[in-house]
Design a protein around this nucleic acid. Structure first.
Lengths: 230, 230
DNA sequence: TGTACATCAGTGAACGCGCGTTCACTGATGTAC
DNA sequence: TGTACATCAGTGAACGCGCGTTCACTGATGTAC
């Protein structure tokens, strides 16, 4: 067992971080499909086989980058959450933080929300970091609900069983109407971000910031949040 | 100039189609990043250099596949449009057709709506086919508007200039409130489809068809369409 | 209708490249006594 | 505190692979007269 205090242990942590940093740099420059162990090693002045002391395979390096990306996005969103007061404002602020992070880290965004990397399947360890933004949105709705400031969206009868199942899984203390709307809004948020990021808004939407804020404001209303709710 | 009737001309059309079919098959099996000219040629019993008689480069083959994918999706959506009566029903049906096509052609969907292929930029020829679904949604709103069955969504004052610009570009005969909501819904539709397709709904949404129909029904309402409108 | 020439699909070899991973090794750092 | 041994980061060569693209060529199909 290596102690956490030895120079060897410290070096290992540093080199691991350097590998991930360089990999992230290449990800940002070229995208996940072009991420290559050999190129990372080359840039770090190491021989490619040396990376195998740190990551058993290219896929494990990818997994580490995916987890870091979810965590980085999650942290941005959580920090934004602290800065706003009131559920509606928080909703907008968190959505705007997701968009901002995506624009600042396009390839990392593509890595986690774009097309799956061929031949790669994400292990279970990616699930908790992937849930952070969703949990934040649920938390906002919960605050509004407890404050009594949450309207109840419509829910067709044929969707009620599924809505109740999702509610039991995700937020048993919220009405099923709200949980259903939350899940839909969550997906729709990433539709807005993805379209802007991947170029579908090219020559269509120009004032994208304002457009986005309006659109996510409408999403908030769909969940039952109104601008005035405390 | 080759006549359209010669055996040579006919053969050229057939071989071009065979190349695209095989490329599509590999796309479906492996994804765009793994699409290889050599593999396509191999599978067709040709030598790889022979493909250069048909496509000047790998990127040109990709472009052809992208255009075909947009057209295939567009045709599915347009066919669905014909089958339903009334704007609200048409909206739901067209959205459901987009989802169906995506589930049936996941890698083609990823090719056109997923992360951009690294090192590839789509030429202008892809723009018109890419617009087909959007135009269809605009057409549905137009029908409802002319029939007088379209409510007017809210539009914040600070977004009005952008809304009017988009309206002039996309559908000058519709109210800016509606056009803005249409563009947002259009992006959000692909958020719903993408999340389902790329696995984000795994262990979250189970009755996906019903969930989707409800969510796009809500999108329709956001545009001003109601179930009863003729 | 027959012949001479032009067109062009497909061949096969080659160029130059980069990739992930394995393996036996060296030598420095850390550990136990 | 000093010595003997174990650990492990990093090396360098190699394996086996696939890729896009170019080029000079053969031979069949099509065209003009």
């Amino acid at each position: 067992m290596s102690t956490a205090h030895g120079a060897r242990a410290r070096a290992r942590i540093e080199v691991t971080a350097a590998i991930k940093d360089e990999a992230r740099r290449q990800l940002a420059a070229e995208g996940a499909a072009r991420l290559s162990l050999r190129a990372v090693a080359r840039e770090l002045g190491m021989v490619s086989s040396a990376l195998y002391r740190y990551f058993p395979s290219r896929d494990d390096l990818l997994t580490a980058l995916i987890i870091d990306a979810y965590d980085s996005l999650g942290e941005s969103a959580e920090a934004a959450h602290e800065e706003a007061a009131g559920p509606y404002e928080r909703w907008i602020t968190v959505c705007a933080a997701v968009r901002r992070w995506a624009l600042d880290h396009p390839h990392e965004y593509a890595l986690i929300y774009g097309s799956p990397v061929p031949g790669y399947t994400a292990p279970d360890a990616t699930v908790p970091p992937a849930a952070r933004v969703g949990l934040l949105l649920i938390g906002i709705a919960r605050d509004a609900h407890q404050g009594g400031g949450l309207a109840r969206p419509v829910l067709p009868a044929d969707l009620r069983p599924e809505a109740e199942r999702m509610t039991a899984d995700l937020a048993p203390d919220l009405p099923p109407e709200v949980v259903t709307a939350l899940v839909a809004s969550w997906a729709q948020l990433y539709g807005l971000v993805g379209f802007e990021l991947f170029g579908q808004f090219h020559r269509v939407v120009e004032d994208r910031e304002r457009f986005f804020r309006h659109a996510v404001g409408q999403l908030a209303r769909g969940v039952g949040l109104a601008p005035e709710s405390a």
